[in-house]
Amino acid sequence: MKANEQSFWQTYLSGMKLHVAIAHYTKVPPSWNEDDYVPDVNKLYWIEEGEGYLKVGDHKVLPKPGELCLLPADVRQSYGTTSDNTFGKYWCHFTAKVGSFNLFELLKTPITVRIQDSERVRESFKRLVHYHNSTEWTAAIHVQSAMLDLIAAFVEHADPITVQAPASGTMDKMNVVLAYIDEHLSESLTVDQLAQLVHFHPNYFIRLFKNTTGLSPIQYVNHKRMDKAKQLLAFTNKSVSAIAETLTMDAPYFSRLFKEYTALSPTDFRELALAGSEATVPNPS
């Protein structure tokens, strides 16, 4: 993946919106079966025991214990048992939106992946099930955390995985804009200027950009500038004022924006980064 495409996906996925509709552990009955239906949610299964089959499109698999299985939304699929030794599985139904798209419209993955660190997935599913059914006021945060960990585990182990453009031609145009933004963070950037790069009316460009990335053009530019600021604070001796100037901002606005993005002032972030780097230096004794 090219650097500007990787930058796009990092920012794109950071704006993902998740909703978990249901989460449980089930020992499925021998009658567990449905053919050729199209769900409007994604389904994730962690197989603990037993056997059965899953089919997505024309691809049929026989998952085994220790495998994480994904059945994406809006795709024809089937499932069923193959013996009385039925699946015992953790499972959930969820939606994952990036911009206006379903995540697994954009990421094409295998149906199953084998996870070496099975305890990681098991504990994430246990947390997901517990907090999805909890009345604790922090439950929603734990649900999001557990679900993100499960999605990350699946994607990290998926091979092959295909990342495709959100819509025909959109990625090419966005790559032009994103590459330009990366190369000109130290210059003033306007919506009109970015829209002209791809010959769009500014109003249409704003809608397209937000539908594609989940962020407005200005939010995206600020996001990238704050990423650049973190690098400069951690790895250079430039003053906060000099970094702000590098990013075409006055120092008070830069400091305020940086704190909005990181919950730390630039000075506090630098001190934390330096303390972390010093902690990794081995003791000479």
Rank of each mutant, 00 (worst) to 15 (best):
T81I: 08
W9T: 05
S188A: 14
S118V: 15
R270Q: 07
R76F: 09
S216K: 03
D268K: 15
S168H: 03
L103Y: 00
L274R: 15
L71R: 12
I243H: 11
N283T: 07
M147N: 00
Q193V: 07
L274P: 04
P30H: 05
S186T: 15
S241C: 11
G50P: 03
L13H: 01
I161T: 09
Y204V: 02
P63F: 03
A251L: 08
T95K: 00
S124H: 05
L148E: 03
L215Q: 11
N42A: 05
I151Y: 00
A273N: 09
K64V: 13
A273I: 05
G52D: 11
L247M: 14
N102G: 09
L208W: 04
N237A: 10
P29V: 09
F87G: 10
N133W: 10
N175W: 03
Y220H: 12
R122F: 05
F254P: 14
S239D: 14
Q116N: 14
S265H: 14
T112C: 12
F104D: 02
M16G: 00
W91E: 06
V98D: 00
Q219T: 13
A242Y: 07
S100D: 01
K230V: 12
A234N: 04
K64F: 07
S285E: 06
A139W: 04
H157E: 14
E51K: 06
D117A: 13
E156Q: 15
E48V: 15
W9R: 11
M147H: 00
A167S: 07
C92I: 02
K259V: 05
F235C: 13
L148N: 03
A3R: 11
T138A: 05
W46V: 13
P217G: 09
M174P: 03
R127M: 09
P72G: 09
V198D: 04
T135H: 14
M1V: 08
